[in-house]
Design a protein around this nucleic acid. Structure first.
Length: 209
DNA sequence: CGAAATCCCAGGTACCGAAA
DNA sequence: TTTCGGTACCTGGGATTTCG
């Protein structure tokens, strides 16, 4: 299986981690579908491919909404720990569906032991590989696509709920949108749509900066 | 000429080691 | 012991170049 996250670098929206269990030989199938790193795909392509992947293989998705994300971040105090926790949950959910899926590949984030420990605490045993640029593996790429699609869906839903544009990323448009959001809904509501530990929060709530 | 693929840049966080 | 600097990693966006 492969796991990957989406939304980590986005100020607005949830953090989504997805996992896909692909049997032997599936890499060729994925490549045939056009699966590759979600960063190189348009939003529409990601949506379409995500649907194809979810229909073809068992998948697990853990979406952490901004409110829960902020609470977890405050509790864990470290983004990598949060990521490890989420990846572990995905792996375990996927294992419940497909107990035979005993090999996992994920991106490397921080100390590899974090993820191993998060799994061990659940008493699971699995062959786990973590490495930089793991998304070059079609299986991890498929997971990144599923995660990305779910992120986009939820970000759009948030924007609708608050009737406010919520751009992706963390650039100038995000800063402007953040200020507009605060002007309309107040600073407290920010916790429902954004990841507060980003420096962007100070720039949004602080006077100018 | 239009669309697609590619490359480059910016932003953010965490980790490690060195210096005060 | 605390603070600072540099490195590695991930993510998004835009501009540029290439192909059909």
């Amino acid at each position: 299986m492969g796991t990957d996250e989406s939304g980590k670098g986005d100020y607005f929206g949830p953090l989504v981690v997805a996992g896909v269990c692909v049997p032997a030989g599936g890499r060729e199938v994925l490549a045939g579908l056009g699966v590759r790193d979600s960063k190189t795909l348009s939003d529409a392509q990601a949506e379409r491919l995500a649907r194809a992947v979810r229909e073809a293989y068992p998948t697990a998705v853990v979406a952490i909404g901004p409110e829960r994300y902020n609470a977890l971040y405050a509790k864990m105090g470290n983004l990598n720990r949060l990521l490890a926790w989420a990846h572990a949950r995905v792996i375990e959910n996927l294992l419940e569906q497909t107990p035979g899926c005993q090999e996992a590949v994920s991106d490397q984030f921080g100390d590899a032991r974090l993820l191993e420990r998060a799994l061990l605490e659940r008493g699971r045993r699995i062959s786990l590989t973590q490495r930089p640029r793991a998304e070059s593996d079609p299986v991890v790429a498929a997971a990144s696509i599923v995660a990305r699609a779910e992120f986009l869906r939820r970000l759009a839903a948030l924007a609708r709920r608050f009737a406010t544009p919520l751009p992706k990323g963390a650039g100038p448009p995000v800063l402007a949108a953040g200020r507009a959001f605060v002007a309309r809904h107040g600073a407290r509501a920010l916790a429902q749509v954004a990841k507060l530990h980003f420096r962007t929060t100070q720039q949004v709530t602080g006077a100018g900066a």
